[in-house]
Structures are given as structure tokens and as C-alpha cells.
Design a protein around this nucleic acid. Sequence first.
DNA 1: GTTAGCACTTTAGGTCTTGGAGTGCTAACC
DNA 2: GGTTAGCACTCCAAGACCTAAAGTGCTAAC
Lengths: 343, 343
Amino acid sequence: MELDKRKMRIQNSIVRTYLETGEPVGSRTLSKDEGLDVSPATIRNEMADLEEMGYIVQPHTSAGRVPTDKGYRFYVDRLMDEQEEKVTDLLGIFSDRMDRVESVLRNMAKVLARNTQYTTMITGPSYETNDVKLIQLSRLDSTHLIAVIVLEGNTIRNKVIEIAAEPKVTDKGLLQLNVLLNSALQGKSLDDITMSFMRSIKDQAGDYGPMIAGVLNAVVEALEESSDERPEVFTSGATNIFKYPELSAGETAKQFLTNLENKEGIIDFLAENRDEERQIKVYIGEEAPFSGLKNCSFVTASYDLGKGIKGTIGVIGPKRMDYEHVIATLKNLVDELDDRYQK
Amino acid sequence: MELDKRKMRIQNSIVRTYLETGEPVGSRTLSKDEGLDVSPATIRNEMADLEEMGYIVQPHTSAGRVPTDKGYRFYVDRLMDEQEEKVTDLLGIFSDRMDRVESVLRNMAKVLARNTQYTTMITGPSYETNDVKLIQLSRLDSTHLIAVIVLEGNTIRNKVIEIAAEPKVTDKGLLQLNVLLNSALQGKSLDDITMSFMRSIKDQAGDYGPMIAGVLNAVVEALEESSDERPEVFTSGATNIFKYPELSAGETAKQFLTNLENKEGIIDFLAENRDEERQIKVYIGEEAPFSGLKNCSFVTASYDLGKGIKGTIGVIGPKRMDYEHVIATLKNLVDELDDRYQK
DNA sequence: GTTAGCACTTTAGGTCTTGGAGTGCTAACC
DNA sequence: GGTTAGCACTCCAAGACCTAAAGTGCTAAC
């Protein structure tokens, strides 16, 4: 059964009012809503219908109505279509040097949290292409080398490698090693570095053969750090939940914050969204494939900086969050990111 | 006025019992304490004295006694002298590679939080000596160089430098540049890099003169990051506060967590302790030169990994924290660190 | 100096009561 | 037929009240 126009109107009014106040909405309140020129009694009838259809519920007999997950969903779906508001003022973030993607993301989380007043989390980029672009050994001191490994996408890893004092590494030897390593490793990914491959390099290294093991180890570690490792997650505004009584009462706050501190689960959840075709997604309450956080809604957006650098941005708030604003802001942010970096 | 032996005994009993239970301690409870063979009435008399002297207070007329800051202080001072218990089981941390000081510290915070069940924070090392040890330019692609700058103490910084496509940088040129830069910059610190110094390098660089500006910029940035920048702070176990009702009730939890998230103030506070001669310090309640966190005590320890790498570890918990355990653990940890790295 | 005894105070928690908010239903109205 | 006024009913929140328990300070006896 479809909702007629008045029911839709009432439903949306209920959601909107509830978003603002956080209190169950009664028929009297609604009747005063501009544009709805009917008596409370009429509204009561309509509400009874809406309740039967599962859009709203009463916490208890003599209370007003509160939207169900389905009710929110109805409201949000409408938003997603209409929504085309332009939000600016997030640009400041980008003035930062792009030196370290990390610091940009961290910053982004912070700004977003301040802007929305909810909790935000951003997964660090996980790199899909993971090839070695450049490797460079330098002598640090008599027993240590430093290996700088640059991966496709310009991620840089440093590794300190301990070496035996003998045989002494000459400048010339180091140069040769670098040439050897670069020609051997360039364009290689983790999968390419097999045992036999390693042995062949070792053979070519002559006197430095024993040392090569350490170097290759470092390379493998660097590659593993970039792929296998779970992406880092930057959170911000965790304490914003104290602004919403329904999330800060009793056990809930504890659970919320503990979940956030551990980051387990959340990472998986965000990572899952990474490749979705649809940029913005909204999970209301139980919809999130992710236990542990009751009474919360998630809005996620995936970004793609090109070169296989992808990640997810998420906003977590109470179910009664300002979806309109959050969606607009995220959409804006992602568009902006794409514009700037996806060339 | 000095405390006689029985008063001392009672005072310490009160503190210890209160640490365990978190509830005001009554005379009856104390009289059952082993070794104290007097009646509740006698104890009541003594307690009246202790209260007058400011070691304990009653939350309200018909409640037991609770230690004051002064009372805790008395208890803790005694601990600091006696204390020589050996706590092990923190060693697992060190098995990690020392590649990244950062990850060791992060880990350390985590283990410490789990061990003590309080909140821990560790300031990243701030480097006192800040000299360039090694600099190495490599070609990334036609318009980018990568500069690897190793500082004394083996901190490694990477900088990507954008360069003009012309004049083309040859391998040979790069080699020369590296030699030039290393001989010029080695052992130099931020203060040494003056305008005239920069000009002189530029002159020596010949054709690559224009490019040098970018490189030197990168060096300066790297140096600034290590010195000027506030040290990073790693926190862990923030949600442990929910284990202590007096910290998780109402506003307090919010304040606590907000303070922790912002890290402002805390950094300064920890940094202040960095150079203290005394390794372990205890701040009880108002003693902390640091507003914002009521009802908390801090135990801090400063570590020194040599080469000017110093920092502070802090444990924050309710006033009624298990000082004995925390102090012992920290002392142990710092000793261990010193043993391992201060050679 | 120590202790038993007792009157006194305060709090935590339970029960009761009351007022307000909101509903569903019925009957009247347009 | 849809809309509305009226009313009885339900439930909750907040306050008033009460009680039991815990702990004290004081006094008088040991």
C-alpha cells in the first residue's frame, strides 16, 4: 500500500520534528505544523494507519510517535533524490600540503566532525596497486643501511637494515647494489617476490649476497604494510556523542566509545563500502551489517584519489541525525576530492 | 604535629580500604582490619583527630571517611620510599622491531593501559639534538625528487620535491648534488641554516642552483617537524574510566574524554615533566598544574633513550587508583627502557 | 586511655500520589 | 464519507513521604 500525500506529509513531519527535539511527537504538535490544516484527531487517525504500516511506533501507550527504521528510511530515500544543496567551507582542508595523505585525512576527519557535530571516521587509503617504483639503499653507519622504498602511488617506506661489519660496503658496491635492486624489483609486487626470485638476486649480488636477504626482507615488509595490513582509521569527534542524550545514557556511551577505540569491526564495515558504485550510503539502526552500535545511523561515502588509492569516510550519529546536512556535506567533500586528485 | 604510629596505621588503612572499595570507610570496618585490635569507638576518636588535621573528610555527617588529597599524599610518599617490587611481563613490547619508535610507543601505551586498567598517554620523543646525519636525493619521476633526510637519532623524514622538467637532472648530476648536500649539511641543525649559508650552497650547485631552494626547504621542514612541532601523544585505554563510577558519572566522563581527545593541556603538562630529575612523580587531585580533570590522579615517568630522545609516560586514573601497582609498573618500564636503549 | 551504649543525622531506595500528555473511540457535524 | 469535538483511559515523570541502614559524637562506665 502506498502512502497518500497527506500521510507522506505527516510522516516526514514526524521525522523532522523528532530529529530536532529527540522527543516523541504527538498529534497536537503536528497539527500546528504549518501547511497541515487538520485537527489533532484527524492526525491521530492517520498516525494509527502509519503505525500499522510500520513507519512509526509509540514507546508506550500515552506517548507520541517515534519513527521506526523503516520510517527513517522513507524520509532519507526522499532526501537522496532531492538533495542538491551546495555546502562550501570545507575547502580549507586542502590548502595543506599533500605530502602526507595521512595528515590530510586526519584533518578532514576533524573538520567534518566539527562541521556535523557527529563522530567521523576515515579509513586511510589502501593501495590496490602495490608495485615497487624505486628502491634506494644508503649507508647510515658502519652496521646499518637505510632502504627507501617508493611504491606506485608514491607511498614511501623506510627501513633500517642491520648488516655485518664485514664485508665492508664500499660506495661503489652500494651503487651496484642499487642498480641491481632497481632493475630487479621495479614494477614487482608482493606476489612476484618468490623464493626462486630472491635466490636469483642473491646470486647476482656476489659478495653482498648475504646482505641481500635483509634488504629483500625489508622490501617484503614494506609491501605487506601497504597491502595486507588493515588500513588505518582516523576518528574524530568521538565525544560529540555526549550531545545526544540517547547515546550518552548509561551503558551506551561506554559501548560506543569502546567500539570506537578498538576500531575492530568498524574497519571491516568501512572497508566493505569501499568499492561500492553508489557513493553515498545510509545505514539506519539495524540496517548496518555491524552489531555493537545500537541506536546509531551511519552515513558513508567512498573516495577515490586515483592510482588505486581508495577509502571510505563515515559519519556516525544518533538515528535522529541531520541526514540532510550530513549527506550534503559528504557528497560535497567527495566531489571536491575527486575533482582535485582524480586527474 | 606528627602522626603517631597508630594514627599512621589507621590513615593508611583508610586509604587502602578506600582504594579497594571506593566507598567511605567507617570505624567498624577498620576495627576488623587485622592488627588493629581496638574498638570502633577508639578508632572514631582517632579519626576525629585525623579529620581535624586534614587527612580525611566525611562526605556527609553519617558517612565514613574518605582520604583528602593530603591523605593520599601521605600514603603515596611512604610508598615511594618502600616500593621496590619487581613487575615483569611488560617485556613483550620490546620484541618489536625498533624501526619505528612511534609504533613501539603506541604499543607501550596499549600494554600499559591493559596492565593497569587506567588510561595511559605517552608523548612521542622530542628530539633535542637535531642535526642532519644524512641526506639522499633520488629521482622519482621527471618532475619529482624524493629527499630522504636522516637525523641524528635515526629519525627518518621523507619529502617529495617538485622540480621543473628543465634542466633535466642527470644521474651524474644527482650524484654530485648528493655529495654536495651531504658535505654541506652533515651535522648542521636548524639554527645553522642561515640565508647566507643557503646562498653559498646554491652557488656551488651550478646549473641546479634553482632546484636547491626546494631541497633546502624540505630539509628545513624536516628539521622543524622534529623540533618545533609539539610531540605527538599516544593515548590508550581511555574507556577504562567507565570502570570507575566516580569518573563516569554525568559530566565527568564527558570532560575526561573531551580533554583526552583534544590533548591540549595534557601535552604541556607531560612535556613539563620531561626534564625532571626525579623519574616518577605523582599528582593527586588538585596538585596537577592542570585544570579540567577533576577527581583524577596522574602518575608520570620520564624516559630517556639517549641521543636526546626524551619523553614522558603518564597514567591517569581516579584518585583512588592503585598507586602501588602503577608506580611499580612505571618504574619498571622506565628502567627497562633505559637499560635497553641508553647504551 | 579504652570501650559500651545510645541518641542523632543523613542517605539510598521504596512506595504513593498527582498532574500532564497523549491516545483511541464514539458520536456529532459538514 | 471524511472531519472534528469530547471524553474516558493509560502511562510516565516528578515530587512527597517513609523506612532501614550506616555511621557518627558524646557520655558514662571500666
